[in-house]
């Protein structure tokens, strides 16, 4: 472990801090990096039982200091269905087929900015939770309640859609609709719920999972693994 850079001042070993402090700091460094490397390795691939237990046992340290990356997508993309843009949409009223009737989140912020990305992540979380009816209903209820109380809009439905990706082959030889990345065929609905406003002005969501009630993708030009 030879120090190869020039960040250090030229001093003799005698000028180093006393051995007790060195030993304490060295122990801290070793223990700290044990947790850092464990949490990082657990983010590369599915966690082993040992990794899961270690990270659970020492969550007071790794979670508190945000060292546990918790499956953050540092791979940027594996072209899976999670690695696309997500949006949460709220139906104000009227016809569900009319795009104008849907409020789309993100509706605020500059693309590339953190504010805009937070809305996208909300959609991603809703899509990831779509298989868990209880958890997704908590999230959808919060979204609906926010629109009902804070934005004074009576939401009829809440849905989450994925904006699927274009293959390059489609751009070369596809139809006009396939070449347009914003055509309806590129949107895949992963969650849809009706909003019910109760007498005490509280909101409840009822998931609609009937296949006939959920729009299906029509395009053949979408990315892999959708």
């Amino acid at each position: 472990m030879k120090s190869t850079d020039s960040t250090a001042c030229p001093t003799s070993d005698d000028s180093l801090v006393n051995p007790t402090v060195r030993l304490s700091v060295s122990l801290f460094v070793i223990v700290h990096f044990f947790f850092v490397f464990t949490s990082m390795s657990a983010n590369v691939a599915p966690r082993s039982e040992l990794q899961r237990r270690l990270l659970t046992k020492f969550a007071f340290y790794t979670q508190l200091l945000n060292l546990d990356l918790d499956f953050a997508p540092y791979h940027l993309t594996h072209a899976s269905e999670q690695d696309v843009d997500h949006r949460v949409e709220i139906l104000r009223d009227g016809d569900t087929d009319d795009e104008e009737n849907w409020i789309v989140l993100p509706d605020e912020g500059v693309r590339g900015g953190e504010r805009y990305k937070r809305y996208q992540r909300l959609g991603r979380v809703m899509a990831m939770l779509a298989g868990d009816d209880t958890a997704v209903s908590w999230l959808a209820s919060s979204v609906g309640t926010h629109f009902l109380h804070a934005r004074k809009t009576r939401p009829q439905q809440v849905r989450c859609r994925r904006h699927m990706l274009q293959r390059w082959t489609v751009i070369r030889g596809g139809s006009a609709a396939d070449r347009d990345p914003n055509s309806a065929g590129y949107f895949r609905q992963v969650y849809l719920a009706d909003c019910v406003i109760l007498s005490d002005n509280q909101l409840r969501v009822n998931k609609r999972d009937d296949e006939s009630q959920v729009a299906q993708p029509t395009s053949s030009g979408q990315g892999p693994n959708p």
Partner: peptide, 14 residues
């Protein structure tokens, strides 16, 4: 190794 470790972690710097 000990000397290298000490230099790496504890040599005073700007």
């Amino acid at each position: 190794f000990g000397r290298a470790w000490n230099r790496f972690w504890f040599q005073p710097s700007d």
